[in-house]
Design a protein around this nucleic acid. Structure first.
Lengths: 143, 143
DNA sequence: ATTGCAAATGCAAAATTTTTGCAATGTAAG
DNA sequence: CTTACATTGCAAAAATTTTGCATTTGCAAT
């Protein structure tokens, strides 16, 4: 993928196989993936797990990927497409994860409050929802 | 602490030392703690780490504690005082964590959108902010 | 194309974090 | 106080993440 090589060079980093594949894998995934998931999706020859971790940490610091915390054992990661801001909904019963782009994600009121009361300058936020998916709601009815 | 014994019995669980201490430690902490932090704060004799993990997982399923994901290696945990709904602000530079209770935490618009578009019934959410604390903002100015 | 150098990877080992089985112990009820 | 059952300690293992070092790779300048 030429695109990813360019992206990497633009930020002054070498475009290695590991990095390009991670970016591709994350862009193709509909939901955020754990380091393990990413490693599993690598085409052969698979790199060492250490390479995946090292690159995720680099890409994260470059802002090319974002981490998503769904209260699991590992964090997950997603491609950080500029301007796009997604949230997740997780089903507590079956674990299903859905991503959606909120039409109205206006937290400016709260951020204003944070600045006023705590003096923090907010750069980013992380918002996830938990509940039950349509299928699991249906099952509850039956039981 | 009589209070915690009662809380535990009310939900049909035995009030053991481990559980009571975890509830006490979490209630006294101003910020959410990792399993390690909790273990460190136990008075002697400290229980085995396994006990801390087992109890956290029980208390979590009982709804007596909540997990907080600040995109670190471990999750953190906080006491789930009924009715109280807190959020965190984390400084990306120094790691400082502040908790605050938003006067306006109205996500009903988004939850409505989720129900309409994805059919999920949202039960809970998790919202954290990241940015820079007053001290680190001051330091940036100087440099 | 070839070469050379810095940077990234593979590999192995270790550090951390979390989970599990089983015997010993503690809790709460009778 | 004793009994029945749940919980804990302990040890071991599983899972996740990090690190050092020799080797290989990416890529810019021949």
């Amino acid at each position: 993928m030429r695109k990813h090589s360019e992206t990497l060079r633009r930020v002054g980093q070498t475009a290695t196989r590991g990095r390009k594949e991670i970016l591709r894998i994350l862009e193709e995934a509909p939901i955020p993936l754990s380091p393990r998931d990413i490693h599993d999706r690598f085409p052969e020859p698979k790199p060492d797990a250490a390479t995946v971790y090292r690159n995720l940490s680099l890409l994260l610091s470059l802002g090319l990927v974002r981490s998503v915390a769904l209260h699991e054992r590992s964090r997950r990661y997603e491609a950080a497409s500029a301007g796009v801001h997604r949230h997740r909904v997780v089903c507590r019963d079956c674990g299903r994860i859905e991503a959606f782009q909120a039409a109205t994600c206006d937290l400016s009121k709260i951020e204003e409050e944070i600045r006023r009361r705590l003096g923090f300058k907010v750069a980013d936020h992380s918002l996830e929802f938990f509940g039950s998916c349509p299928d699991c709601q249906a099952k509850e009815q039956t039981e």
